[in-house]
Each structure stands twice: as C-alpha cells, then as structure tokens.
C-alpha cells in the first residue's frame, strides 16, 4: 500500500513523473548484513513473519539447516547455509540471509507492466503494491537475484519490503531490531558503508584478506548490502551472483524495443491511410456493371 510519508522515485509502467514534492529527507537508507557475525539463529526470519503477519507451511527436514528451503510468498527472507572449504581442511559455515536486495536499478520495476504495482521510494526501498499487481510474473524475469514469489493464494507477487511501513515512521526493519548478534544493522547508506569499512578492516586483520563489501555496481548498488569474508568469491555464499545485472534480454524487451515497436505499429497504420489517400483504392472497372 502506498505510504503517504515516503516520496516515490520510480513507479512501474509509468511514463510521467512520480509524486516527489517533499524535500529530500535523510537520503538513501541501507541494511547491512555482516555475514561474519551471523550465527544462523533465524530470529530475523521469525521477526519478519511476526511483523508482516506471515506463516509459511511447516515443511520437512531435508538434511540441511535451510528451513524453509526457499523464499515463498510467506517467507520473505531465508537463511542459506553453505559449508565450504576455502582452504583445504578448514571448514567454514557461511550463512547468508537471503531476500530482496533493493537494487538502485530494480529489474523487477523495469519489467513490471502494471502502473504502480512496483515503486521505488526516494530512500531506495523497492516495494510491491500488491493491489496493483496483476500476477503476470514479469518481475521474476527482471530480478537478477531470483527474489519475487507469486502467491498461489491470490496470484500476487510478494517479497521483502525492507519494512517500508516501519522505516516510513522512523523505525528500523523488524529483522534488524531482533538480530541478537548485531549482524544486521540499518541506517543511511553512507553510514552503513562507513560501518562496513570498519568491519572489513577488522576482518582483514584477522586473516580474511579478501573481506569486502557487497554493493554490486551492475544494478546501481543495492540498499541491502553484505559484508563478505570472501569478497572475491560471492558465489560461495549460496550462489550470490558475482556481478549481477538486469538481463540484456529484459533490457531489450522493456528498453528500446518497447517504444520503437509501438511506434512501428502506429507508422504502419499511418502508411496504410496515406497510401489510400494518395495512390487510392484498387478498383476493377467492370465491377460496378456486374453488381
């Protein structure tokens, strides 16, 4: 649902300016997830369910800690557990809190055909407004992180809102509030980058020489960022993409071809009309006599 207290920077399938008169407030926000501090307790999953009134099905144990196995319309965030040996004989348990990355250049919003079903607030949060969602699934094709899920209950797309309803009234997201180790922090994007730099220095001192901030430039940066111990190998973290981009196919489809092809159809109709009024119809002379 639209939040009157937040300005809108971009709106799906809309070619005119979005409501944007308020003076820029605190600027872009960001959530920083420090994977080196995560203990995999899933309190953030619970907090997300609590705040958003979501209850996923109780599944079955399939031999790994991941539960639920994947994001769903009821699970907007899930812990993904990866057991890796970056160095021979040294097991590491990398636990990544997966969910919407809130891209600065959101592929879902670009692909969405329904006006106002996806909005990007001026603070950077990308939100789905389900009352405008038509259930086409185009957002799934647009997303470089495989995040949106269509509900079987109402055929609408759902994902993490970054608790836009909480942020809009000056609160931090529910997952941030509940995290017992301080692995998830929230604030202005500038502050979060600064905070991450401190963490990365610390990690480097402790031997993680490739520790880095994950704020991928291919999608214009994100408003959910990770501190990765192995910043050179994001794929280790349950296949976090190294260089995520909006697929060139989606850019082709919802980029230049969309207006050009529409124009082409219009031109074809005009060409026909002007051919008729210049060259004229093709008539057979005897036809009048025969009728």
């Amino acid at each position: 649902m639209a939040l009157q207290s937040l300005d809108i920077k971009a709106r799906s399938a809309t070619t005119t300016p979005s409501p944007n008169v308020r003076i820029e407030g605190a600027g872009p926000v960001a959530k920083l997830i420090d994977i080196s501090k995560c203990i995999g307790c899933k309190a953030c999953q619970v907090a997300c369910m609590e705040w958003n009134d979501l209850r996923d099905e109780v599944g079955t144990n399939v031999g790994v800690y991941d539960n639920p196995r994947d994001l769903t319309d009821q699970s907007w965030t899930v812990m993904r557990f990866s057991e890796v040996e970056v160095e021979q004989g040294r097991l590491e348990w990398l636990i990544r809190k997966d969910g919407c990355m809130h891209c600065a250049d959101p592929g879902c919003l670009k692909a969405c055909p329904s006006p106002g079903a996806i909005v990007q607030y001026s603070n950077g949060i990308v939100d789905f407004h389900e009352e405008n969602c038509i259930g086409c699934g185009y957002c799934i094709t647009g997303c470089p992180f495989n995040i949106p899920r269509i509900s079987k209950k109402d055929n609408k797309a759902y994902k993490c809102t970054l608790c836009s309803d909480r942020v809009g009234v000056g609160l931090e997201p529910a997952c941030v509030k509940t995290c017992p180790t301080g692995a998830i922090v929230f604030g202005s994007k500038v502050d979060m980058i600064h905070h991450a730099e401190g963490r990365i220095t610390d990690l480097k001192e402790r031997g993680y020489s490739n520790a880095a901030l994950y704020d991928p430039k291919g999608v214009g940066g994100t408003h959910v960022m990770y501190v990765l111990q192995h910043g050179d190998k994001p794929e280790l973290y349950a296949n976090l993409p190294k260089d995520p981009n909006i697929s060139p196919l989606v850019s082709l489809w919802k980029g230049v071809t969309k207006p050009l092809m529409s124009l082409g159809l219009g031109l074809a109709v005009f060409a026909g009309f002007f051919h008729y009024v210049t060259a004229g119809p093709k008539e057979v002379e005897e036809e009048e006599k025969t009728d």
Binding site: C136, G137, T141, S247, V250, L252, T257
Partner: peptide, 25 residues
Amino acid sequence: VVWQPWFAPYFPIWLLRIAVVVHAL
C-alpha cells in the same frame, strides 16, 4: 513458458527471459 500461474513456475528464469522477448517479437 510465461503462462502464470499454470506453466511458468516449471521453467527456469533464463528461459522465461528468452520467451518474453520471442513472444513480443
């Protein structure tokens, strides 16, 4: 391939991306 909700969930996302472009063209 892109028919929601009946068939699209059974296809990989890379195929959905090809299908939307083929469909539009």
